[in-house]
Design a binder for these strands. Structure first.
Lengths: 128, 128
DNA sequence: CCTTGACCTTCCTATGACTGGAACCCTTAT
DNA sequence: ATAAGGGTTCCAGTCATAGGAAGGTCAAGG
């Protein structure tokens, strides 16, 4: 199948698939006309990537996960460690966003939000 | 004062301040030797930017906030609306990260993480 | 006076993970 | 013959910086 069908089956834009080829995540063979040819295996790999990216793994993590996936002898501990490291990063990002959100919430709460110019949000930004 | 001191007072890298000048967020005058000269007002503005960025506002939001800040007649409602829009975006990002985190947590939980090759994480990524 | 070291300047490149667009080729149907 | 709807490459842009090279400026010390 061509890139368009592979894209819709894997749930990735064709552009992204070309990019993944460029950085060596996939290497579909070419037809005589130069078109990339995708088999089930490649589509499966692309879907794997789409899901891993959907879970927020970086491209380099995905590269690692793919190679672990293709290594039938690897220990699940390695995958688990990678996932745990990633989970901790997500936790940190959530914590940071929640901190922001809390501050923002206080400011919004304190601001009358009417047509008068006094604004605690700007007052806070201007210097606490 | 020169850029170095302005940077440490505002809590921003000098590189970032040059960038902010490039995109028109600040316009410090120059000394005869070509050095940027920062007064209290500019440093204050930079600190304002640092705090707004720290709350996750985009550069364009910051530009807006700055111009609202400098408009003594603006209604606080406008600032409040901007902050609320931003808060909703943060909420959405938190929700997305929490969704990821939950899935990841389940997978990690299901994975023995030992030296055997069977791994629910990879099995899930490979296709549910 | 000269040098040293800490500043400052501009300009160019890179990041991550794509996205958009131009210019051009291939295939199929009308 | 042509038009539509694929495909191809290559270049530029995104966001908000960070890193580094090459060179100008300044105050202090020998």
């Amino acid at each position: 199948m061509n890139i368009g069908e592979a894209a819709s089956r894997a749930g990735l834009p064709a552009k992204t698939i070309r990019y993944y080829e460029e950085i060596g995540l996939v290497s579909p063979p070419r037809d005589a006309n130069g078109y990339r040819r995708f088999g089930e295996k490649e589509v499966h790999k692309l879907a794997f990537l789409a899901r891993a990216r959907g879970l927020g793994f970086s491209i380099e993590d995905c590269r690692m996960l793919l190679s672990l996936y293709e290594d039938r002898a690897r220990a699940s501990a390695e995958v688990r460690a990678l996932a745990q490291r990633h989970a901790r990063e997500i936790d940190a990002r959530i914590a940071q966003l929640e901190q922001m959100r809390a501050t923002l919430g206080e400011l919004i709460h304190a601001c009358a939000g009417d047509d008068r110019p006094d604004c605690p949000i700007l007052r806070d930004l201007a210097g606490r």
